[in-house]
Structure formats: structure tokens, C-alpha cells
Amino acid sequence: MADADADLVAERAALAEAERTIAPGSAARAARDVLAEVEPEPGVAKPDPILVVEGMRRSFGGLTAVDVDHLEVQRGAITALIGPNGAGKSTLFNLLTGFDRPDHGNWSFDGRPLVGLRTHQIARLGLVRSFQLTKALARLTVLDNMKLAGQDQAGERLLPALARPRWRAQEAAIEGRADALLERFQLSAMRSQLAGTLSGGQRKLLDMARALMTEPRLVCLDEPMAGVNPALTQSLLHHVTGLRDDGTTVLFVEHDIDVVMEISDWVVVLGEGRVIAEGPPHTVAKDPQVIEAYLGVADEENVG
């Protein structure tokens, strides 16, 4: 039978209790209700799209990684992007956020075409991403990693930088926001450690927290839950739904189908670079094409 260290387990139980007292975001079902009217078919138009992709193609040598005819992402909703490994999910994220350039195609964010814009320009418009493999600056502290992402800092310009009183208030506000986010992602205890000393899962949390520093209108999360311990997943899910409830649009890549079912308002399925299905989570989960391509036949979770 299992042997346990009582002290450690008691300490963990106290932490779990503290986590539970963080109030979950209000259940804003509006997005789901609006999307319930939309036909679940690939490329369908949404009532209020914040992001529209048109004829986007990207090939690597002979391999077409992304080939999306038309895709719209509904404002204020949580949209999940799923698909087998190699379906082009991360490539699509790279294209949308300017980290890679498409061979053809247009896309627009809030009506503004993004073709030809650089990553930082796209980020300033309010479209920000996190990475599957984290990109923290290892030699800066956790707090500095966060503060670096603050927008329009007066101290970034040479002359104002010399007049500290003029940006002290802004600096304090940015630090306050950083601390609030660190608290939310349970990283407060590590705020003055170098980011390089964090574990893989903690870096994941830092990456997500840092993306939120810019107060984005659309945040793209690349496998936010991968590498995060399952007991923490639930509170992270609350934070993601909380973002949506605060008006942020969320587009995320995720492999954990339970997570997708739990929080997404709409699911887009990619297969070999194309949108092969989209719809509300429970409709998509029943699509035989999706089951075949993505979920596999037997779900081992249900065996014994």
C-alpha cells in the first residue's frame, strides 16, 4: 500500500485549501449562447469576429504546414485549437502573431490587416501569445521578467529615463500589476529568484503571466496546461475563464481533451494544416472525423 509523509501531505493540503478560496470568475455564458446560433462547419462566419484569417498558406519544402481557407475567431469567447501532432497548430500561431510569414494569405485583427507587421507591432495592437516551450529570460528575476512586458514605459526613452520622479508612479503601477499576476499564478514566493531557477512548470506559469502583463485583447496560449501539475490545472482554468469574463478573447492550443471540454466555448480542429471541423465542444467531440484523426479509438482513461 502507499506510504505517506504526513507533514508534507498536510502542508500540501493547506496549500490546496488556500487555492480553493480564490474565487472563480463569474460564469459569463454569453459567448456560448451567441455561438450556439452558429452552424458547426469549417470556415463558418461568426457574429462578431475579432480575428479573421483568409486563404493563409505556409509550406516548408514539400510539406504544407498550414492551409486555412477561412477562419474567424469570435470576440470575447474561448476558442480551442486542437489537432494531432504536426497538424500545424503552432505554425498557425506563429503566423498569426508575426513570428513566421505566410506564403500567401491575409489576416486581420479587429478589422486591421496584419500582413507585413512585425511581432512587436502586432503585440502592441493587443494580440499576444505564449509559447509551448517557454521563453523566460533566465538571468533576470521573475519580477523583472514580468516588468519588462509592461507597455509604454516612460523610462524606456532616454530623456525621461533620467527624471525618475516622472516615472516612479508608473513603475509602481507596473510592479503592482506584476505582483498581482504572480500571486494569481502562485509565483509570488519566487518573485526575486532568477527565472532560470524555476522548474519547467513554473516557467510555463511565468510565460502565461507575462503575456497578460500587456493587457491583451486577444491572447494566444500554446499548450498552457502542458507541464503544469494537474492539481494546479483547475485553478489555472479558472484564470483562463476569468480572462474571458473580463473581456479578453482567448485562443488556445491544448491536447488535454478534458480541459478543452471544460472551458472552451468553441473548438477548431486542424488536420494536416486545414480546418477539418469546428463547433461547440460537445458537437466536435462527436464528429467521427475528429475522433479518427485526433482522439484515437480507445480512450485508455476508461479502461479499468
Binding site: 500500500m1 502507499a2 506510504d3 505517506a4 508534507l8 501531505v9 493540503a13 492539481a231 490545472t233
Partner: peptide, 21 residues
């Protein structure tokens, strides 16, 4: 914190609550 056969950990309600979600 805990040691045991995989199945018995899976069946332990405390392990499930604190570590598995």
C-alpha cells in the same frame, strides 16, 4: 511525499485530491 504501487496511489483519495486533481 507518497510511495506505493501505481494503482494504490490512483485509489488513494488524498493523492487524488492533492496531486491528481
Amino acid at each position: 511525499a507518497y510511495t506505493g504501487p501505481g494503482r494504490s496511489l490512483l485509489d488513494d483519495p488524498k493523492v487524488v485530491e492533492l496531486y491528481l486533481g
